[in-house]
Design a protein around this nucleic acid. Structure first.
Lengths: 142, 142
DNA sequence: TTATCAATTAATAATCATTACTCTTTGATA
DNA sequence: TATCAAAGAGTAATGATTATTAATTGATAA
């Protein structure tokens, strides 16, 4: 999602949420991320700018972003949770060695979802598609 | 998976694992389950037969079953974890209201996986496909 | 511009699934 | 039947997340 402060402020106001510097900082960071960060990653990053920020604030802002439909919490059975601002239909390719995650979009994925959706009476509320595969970096390492 | 004590005993022996009544009990229960039980569900069930069984034993046996490739831990961001003995390619249809899970297999799912696999150089190590949809029971309740 | 007040933050405690640990028991082998 | 590593029971520890509480701060309206 292409995002900036102005858009975020409008979104918050339209939902009746207050605009705070911490929120803007966390949201900007998460929405621009491509590495599927954990709460801890988000926390340690935002801490650079807001020295006294608390983990609770990070978790609450994550919940806010989920509620607004701007990010998804990935369905991994690993802890901690990881978050993704990509709301297109895609497959998460997860490397079991280094836990890196990359999004994969293709015709095949798109079509599958449409076909499945029609098989399931078109009332799917959400989806999560994961595939495990050693990433390039790890397969080179050997 | 069609399972019985005889098969399980062979499996354990072939892997060098000891055969214990607790193990047989837990494995039988999980492998025959269709409701994607949690560790706690497994524990409370097996407790009926083995009064002094410990959760640690349940968790260790679950790990054993995963290691043997007989069950999968579902990728849900909800806690506790849920387990599935169905090792066919399938979609987990999850009801966000009651957290029930049902397996869905079809041509569409099968073909998608084969196509995706070939797109990803055929070296997929595992997969997890989830879809959220209100179950029949919950949609009736209203 | 300032007063008001509910929403938000920071800090900390609590929760709870899971894992680690320790000691006791037991299955498998010779 | 003795031996011993593996497994079990019980309990403590871990760690991510959530709840709580008191202080702070946006947003609104006088």
């Amino acid at each position: 999602m292409d995002i900036n402060d102005e858009k975020l402020i409008k979104l918050f106001h339209s939902r009746g949420f207050k605009v705070t510097p911490q929120r803007l900082g966390i949201c900007n960071y998460v929405l621009k991320s491509t590495d599927h960060p954990s709460a801890e990653k988000i926390y340690s990053n935002i801490k650079k700018k807001y020295k006294t920020i608390s983990r609770a604030t990070v978790y609450k802002t994550i919940a806010l972003l989920k509620e607004m439909g701007l990010i998804s919490e990935l369905n991994l059975n690993t802890t901690p949770s990881r978050y993704d601002p990509n709301q297109n239909i895609h497959v998460n390719i997860i490397c079991p060695k280094c836990n890196s995650i990359s999004d994969y979009e293709s015709e095949v994925v798109e079509e599958f979802f449409l076909n499945l959706k029609s098989e399931l009476d078109n009332d799917i509320l959400g989806q999560n598609l994961d595939v495990y595969k050693i990433c390039e970096t790890c397969s080179k390492k050997k």
